[in-house]
């Protein structure tokens, strides 16, 4: 009897405290977001830092781009996040606007004995042929012609791709579709595709692990994974014909050279962009919010957070190997906010 009494007391106590703390939470502002997993480490750090600075609580759930789009359309979150932009028509239909918040790059990585970081050069069409399974050996003339002076082994190429649906694959296949008609016709551009060759790893870490283990492998991972795992990356030929290395500067160059003003609804894919320094497989991660905001104070707080990310938090991003948006782009984004985001018919920003 005594024990039951104690348990009852405990349960009541817990109930009281949760009810009470729930009340406190409801009073202070909480913003919920969900979506792409690629920017998750950064968004959660930003949210943590921002809460320390301002007290605004921001939750971000990494459930994948598809999930993020579904959640914002169901209005269960305040913002959604997606690695692949939505088309203007789809945005208008749902009453959403999108804007890029952060960038990253997709980097082809290889495991060939004796080949180090940035030693091997590839062009877009050759990369597509490798992933199509048409170029089968590392000493194939198509590769050797781009790499005069580099001794390439008579080794079978093992292609490694993502097995799970992912924004990274979307960006990568978008690039291959732009540079190879063959790829566009046979495979296409999506978050997961019917791969003509190779094996699939789960997640960036899965692809990185497979590439490191299979002699003669080539795969593609987010920039940060290539750096952290120290897997040799490939120099890629960009639209201007120059071979570039994946660096924060070359990703930003791609974003800077892209013609954002002419992209309706910020539908901009940063692959194969012009400019001598542009890395050809750059991608932005997008935020989706409703144009018509019910709670003006909440909307304003949310936009303030994004503004802080653009203006003050670039260094945090770089430390985690993400690429901040160039000023030119986010000024354009904020101009869009003041025009399009309304609450009760009145603009929310600035």
């Amino acid at each position: 009897m005594k024990i039951t009494g104690k348990i009852l007391f405990l349960v009541l106590g817990i109930l009281f405290t949760t009810a009470f703390s729930g009340k406190i939470n409801a009073e202070s502002l909480t913003i919920n977001g969900a979506g792409a997993s690629f920017p998750y480490p950064l968004y959660s750090q930003w949210a943590y830092k921002y809460e320390q600075l301002t007290g605004l609580k921001l939750n971000y759930q990494s459930i994948g781009s598809g999930g993020g789009i579904a959640q914002i359309k169901a209005r269960t979150v305040d913002f959604g996040a997606s690695d692949a932009p939505l088309q203007k028509e789809e945005l208008d239909q749902a009453g959403l606007i999108q804007f890029p918040l952060i960038m990253g790059g997709v980097v082809p990585v290889v495991n060939i004995k004796g080949v180090k970081d940035g030693q091997i050069k590839l062009s877009g069409p050759v990369l597509a042929d490798i992933f199509l399974g048409k170029v089968k050996k590392w000493n194939d003339p198509a590769i050797a012609n781009l790499n005069k002076g580099l001794k390439l082994p008579d080794l079978e190429i093992s292609v490694v791709h993502r097995a799970d649906g992912s924004g990274t694959t979307w960006i990568f296949t978008n690039y291959l579709s732009k540079v190879s008609q063959d790829w566009k016709g046979k495979v296409g551009n999506d978050k997961s595709v019917a791969w003509p060759a190779g094996v699939g790893g789960k997640g960036n870490e899965g692809v990185a692990a497979y590439v490191q283990q299979i002699n003669g492998a080539i795969g593609y991972v987010e920039f940060a994974y290539a750096l952290e795992n120290k897997i040799p990356y490939v120099l890629l030929q960009n639209q201007a014909g120059k071979f570039v290395a994946p660096t924060i500067e070359s990703f930003q160059a791609a974003a800077n050279n892209a013609d954002w003003e002419k992209a309706p609804g910020f539908y901009m894919v940063l692959t194969d962009q012009p400019g001598e320094k542009s890395w050809p497989i750059t991608g932005a991660s997008f935020i989706l919010i409703y144009k018509d905001q019910k709670d003006s104070a909440k909307a304003k707080a949310m936009l303030k957070f994004f503004d802080w990310c653009y203006n003050n938090a670039g260094d945090m991003a770089k430390k985690l190997n993400y690429v901040p948006m160039p000023k030119k782009v986010f000024e354009l984004v904020e101009k869009g906010w003041s025009k399009e985001i309304l609450s009760g018919g009145k603009p929310v920003w600035p």
Binding site: I63, G66, G67, A70, A163, D164, G165, S192, K202
Partner: peptide
């Protein structure tokens, strides 16, 4: 394994 891989992003 197919379910584990592809369910999350199948929109």
């Amino acid at each position: 394994s197919t379910l584990a891989n592809e369910f999350a992003e199948a929109s």
